[in-house]
Design a protein around this nucleic acid. Structure first.
Lengths: 394, 394
DNA sequence: CCCTGTTAATATGACAGATGAACTAACCAT
DNA sequence: ATGGTTAGTTCATCTGTCATATTAACAGGG
């Protein structure tokens, strides 16, 4: 990375900067390069970052001392001294909890987002017992991995939490219409029980971060992550950060009213985008078309993939509604790419073209790249790692 | 400003930071404090910025040497040495050009956004002669103010320009459906003619910046600026910067399709928000209701203010449509505040409540503050100053 | 008129951190 | 062995902030 585009910090800032700031920034840079390019030598880090080899060595020394990274094998070059490869410390790991109305998963992942083990958590019927069950499952998972060291617990949840300046979470759910148990207490309860720092964030925000941390996006461009499940949530990544908005409530494109005469929505409004484009909408379409109750969404997807006419038509209707919403997002934010995560992503070869065609049917000054989340099935889990790293690493 | 909320630079960055970065940031901070609090002493700057007095003195020395600021009178305190007040250098000024489909204004402003003189520019009919007329007017304005020194020319235009990493402009208009002359060449033509740096930006972006630089907003919160004129443009300020999106096309909420069966729009789509909520829409409503051609929008506003039934009804319809769009923005981005700029702002006591009521008629997790632009009539001009400062000052 | 207290502003040395050049280490090919 | 090459470290220098000391400038009181 040549240093040509000199960094500009010309935003209006209210806090003064000390001379530790450059180290903070450069350390971040170096760590991220190790993360994304490991194994990599100090010399290559210097080349890639634009920093001097001496500076890189100092930063690497810090990261080694704090055990974020480890020295690995030595490389072999046609000429010259052999480089020492650096890797993320594989022993450090993160607990990832993906809370989902229909299915909650707990996993152990390492800092590079590799899935080490995972379990479905069966949540009890009684809303008051859900958190206890989660705490219990987490305890067992930690016990079963006593050889590893955990840096924290990341949770992606379908709802918006109040956030403060620091990107950490107040732990108080304010807007989670698709969850029926008292999710607001989960942060404090789990922190109390495990002693580990817990970072909670909205699924879509977390997946957006995940895409930037682990995916093909490089953090330099704008990205909107659209999470399609029971409802629709979006995470907006712009200018190198998640756009959180006042109280952390940015990204509720799902509750933009597209049709004033539309169906009532769980949020209390009617005709919201998610009433026509979510999994629930797909199932409703099926029920209307086939004139019988819809099966679970995964099953419905299977029907559509197998060529069942009612199944196909209902998924198509859903895709058209999705496309219209994506046009809204593309028009409003002109992101470089829009990434979709949800149950439909495994069937992207079917739904992707439909969604994209509908998005492009209207004029669009700049057409964003549209794609499913990188490794969609792990995206929500891995986003939890991104959350913890984003919060705790620096 | 106590240093308590330690600045976090934990975004994913690709450029390394040198140890000149803190100075850059602190210099910015000090300059902005002088700008917003002038006259102010070094001691107060230290208190207000959290920096040491010695550091402040060094930075002030730089700013004085570069003539950004000047030493003014001395203060008087009940006890102790008298402070030396610092002020922006009143001699430095900026040319501000507000290009507007119906009216183009050229002004001289100082760095604090004070309007020193201004002129309407009458644009010739022939599209090919417009830029020459503008260049001519600028030349005359500079000649008439030969005692002043100009730092640059800021232009706010109703359109989106291609932008690059540096927030400067490529000078090539790509999307300006409401301008009929070749605006894309304006930057290079004017730079060539005057030798001054020219910064061009979308009206809404510029006004958003202006609000942050000169208004009551402190740059710490998110803000969406909605510019209502022939069309509707929005400028999104989040995480301390304008959200520009790929190619600089973010903010086209005006072209989100709210009604698939709506009227055709200048962008080629139909049922865009701006087809129902812009000045043009207001005039169309009047023509429909009164069954006669609408007068110019300013006149229509006057009718409404004077109590003319058709005038009132048409403006009301426009306000309702505006409110619906603001609900969309509030839902999507949850900004701390939404600021409106345009011809309607002088009548805010009439239209404001209507717009806000409609915005709040639907559920909203977080209701943004809604207000007209600070000194709405000067907002577009002053935004040009913000553009130049944002671009050239540091 | 000269202390004393108080506040403003500058000077100075210590510390953090990036830089670049010099240096050492390790390897290969001849 | 030797020279060439690449990796990584050491060190002096520079920029910049910070804390403290010092000087400057004022008011009020004896």
């Amino acid at each position: 990375m040549p240093k040509s585009p000199a960094p500009r910090f010309s935003f209006i800032n209210k806090v003064s900067a000390s001379n530790k700031i450059p180290r903070q920034i450069n350390r971040n840079l170096i760590f991220n390069q190790i993360r994304t390019r490991q194994p990599i030598s100090r010399a290559d880090l210097a080349r890639v970052s634009g920093l001097q080899r001496s500076t890189v060595s100092l930063i690497v020394e810090d990261l080694l001392r704090e055990r974020w990274i480890v020295e690995g094998s030595m490389g072999r070059l046609p000429r010259g001294r052999r480089p020492t490869f650096l890797n993320l410390n594989g022993q450090r790991s993160v607990l990832a909890l993906d809370i989902h109305p229909s299915q909650t998963t707990l996993a152990v992942m390492d800092l590079s987002g590799k899935l080490l083990s995972h379990n479905l958590i069966v949540l009890p019927e009684d809303p008051q017992k859900v958190i206890a069950a989660i705490v219990d499952a987490i305890g067992k998972m930690i016990a079963a991995n006593s050889d590893r060291s955990f840096d924290g617990i990341g949770m992606s949840v379908p709802g918006r939490f109040g956030l403060q300046l620091k990107e950490s979470n107040l732990g108080k759910s304010i807007f989670a219409p698709n969850i029926s148990w008292p999710i607001g207490q989960i942060k404090s309860r789990v922190e109390e029980a495990t002693g580990l720092p817990v970072v909670v964030d909205n699924v879509a925000n977390a997946c957006a971060l995940s895409e930037v941390w682990f995916g093909e996006s490089d953090g330099m461009h704008d990205l909107v992550m659209v999470s399609v499940s029971e409802g629709i949530g979006t995470g907006i990544f712009a200018n190198g950060r998640i756009v959180r908005g006042e109280g952390g409530f940015a990204g509720e494109f799902g509750h933009v009213q597209l049709d004033p005469n539309g169906l009532p929505c769980s949020c209390g409004s009617r005709g919201c985008w998610e009433t026509v484009a979510s999994n629930r909408a797909g199932m409703r379409y099926y029920a209307e078309i086939a004139n019988k109750p819809s099966p679970a969404f995964e099953v419905l997807l299977g029907l559509a993939a197998a060529g069942d006419p009612a199944g196909k038509e209902s998924i198509e209707k859903m895709c058209i509604a999705l496309g219209r919403g994506l046009h809204m997002i593309a028009t409003a934010l002109a992101p470089t790419e829009i990434v979709v995560v949800g149950d439909i992503t495994p069937l992207w070869h079917l739904v992707g073209p439909l969604i994209e065609a509908e998005m492009r049917r209207r004029p669009l000054v700049k057409v964003p790249r549209l794609r499913p989340a990188h490794e969609g099935n792990k995206a929500r889990l891995r986003s939890a790692v991104a959350l913890v790293m984003n919060e705790n690493l620096l």
